[in-house]
Structures are given as structure tokens and as C-alpha cells.
């Protein structure tokens, strides 16, 4: 039943990989910055007569490192926030989709058994698999799907699906 669900946000998706790369960059660059700044501070205290230009250069490099780190952190933060938003709206859409389906089923007056079968048809199972899952004969499922199509006023699986797609893709009034 999970074969078709959650493809968009599966682990290892492109967003997730990008976030992982960014996080590694942040960690490694933070450690580099720490090392480099520590080195500059050490030089400053040791003060073994290096040219002042050298210190300025090192200070500048340290500044650039820290600035780059800041940019990476902001970038990662925004990416994670976007992933969170997508998850939230997908959850909301799923909830509303469930309500839409429920409304149609009630409207057609499906029996509880027909509801289960209709839901599995929507999820893309064929009659044989539905029979296997529900522990009924294929003939029973065939009869139930015929009843569902009749009540919904469609002539088959594809039209049943397109009823819901139409509802999703319709222009808002």
C-alpha cells in the first residue's frame, strides 16, 4: 500500500541530499574557521615580528571564512524551512483529499465494504490484489466494483479516477 505514497519526500530525495551536503560544508568550514582564527590569535600573541601586512591578510581571510560560513548557515536554514513547508502543505492536502473522497463516497451511498474496495481502486490495486488483501473471491470484488461504478455513474476504473483528478485540477471558482 506504500508503493505509491510519499515519493516526493522520501529519504534521499534531492532536497534531502542538498541539505546533507550543505550541513557537511557548514561543519567542515566551521572547523576550518576555528583552526585558522586560532592560528591568527596564536600568531598575534607570539608576535614574532611578522610583517603587519601578513597579519592583515590573515585577518581578512578569517573574515571571509566566517562570512562564507554565515552564508552557508542561512542557505541551509532556508532549505530546511522550505522542506518543512512542503511537508506541512502535503500533509494538509492529504487530509483534505481524504475529506473529498469521503464526501464523494457518502454522496454515492457506498456500503462500508464498497468504501474499502473503492479506496483500494483509487490507490491503483487491481481486482486480484484487492481480493487477496480482503480475503474474498475475485468474483465478489468484481461485483462490488461494478456496484461502485454504478453508484458513481461511471463506466469503469479510469473514469472513477478522473472524477477525483477533475476535482483536484479544477479552476477555483
Amino acid at each position: 500500500m506504500n508503493a505509491t505514497a510519499g515519493k516526493l519526500l522520501r529519504p534521499g530525495g534531492p532536497d534531502e541530499r542538498r541539505a546533507a551536503v550543505l550541513a557537511w560544508m557548514v561543519v567542515i568550514q566551521a572547523l576550518c574557521a576555528l583552526f585558522f582564527i586560532g592560528d591568527v590569535v596564536f600568531d598575534l600573541y607570539a608576535g614574532d615580528g611578522q610583517a603587519p601586512g601578513h597579519l592583515w591578510l590573515e585577518g581578512f581571510v578569517a573574515l571571509v571564512l566566517v562570512f562564507g560560513l554565515g552564508v552557508l548557515i542561512v542557505e541551509l536554514r532556508q532549505l530546511l524551512a522550505r522542506m518543512e513547508r512542503v511537508t506541512a502543505s502535503l500533509m494538509a492536502a492529504r487530509g483534505e483529499m481524504a475529506e473529498v473522497i469521503e464526501a464523494f463516497f457518502s454522496d454515492w451511498g457506498l456500503t462500508p465494504a464498497e468504501r474499502d474496495v473503492a479506496l483500494m481502486i483509487l490507490k491503483g490495486f487491481d481486482n486480484e490484489s484487492i481480493a487477496g488483501i480482503r480475503g474474498r473471491a475475485v468474483g465478489t470484488i468484481r461485483a462490488q466494483s461494478a456496484a461502485i461504478y454504478g453508484k458513481a455513474g461511471v463506466d469503469g476504473r479510469t473514469q472513477l479516477l478522473s472524477l477525483f483528478m477533475e476535482e483536484l485540477l479544477a479552476e477555483p471558482e
Binding site: A5, L22, A23, V27, L76, T87, A98, E102
Partner: peptide, 25 residues
Amino acid sequence: MSMNSGGRPGARKYRVWDPLVRITH
């Protein structure tokens, strides 16, 4: 109506720890 969102049957998955948290941990 069961809208399973993947993973173990009967479990909801929540993304909780971002990669930076995991790497530092």
C-alpha cells in the same frame, strides 16, 4: 480511512533531526 504515508505499517514518520544536528551529534 487509512492514508499510510510510508515506513512501518501503522507508523507516522516525522522529520525531526536535520543533517547538521546529526553530524554534530
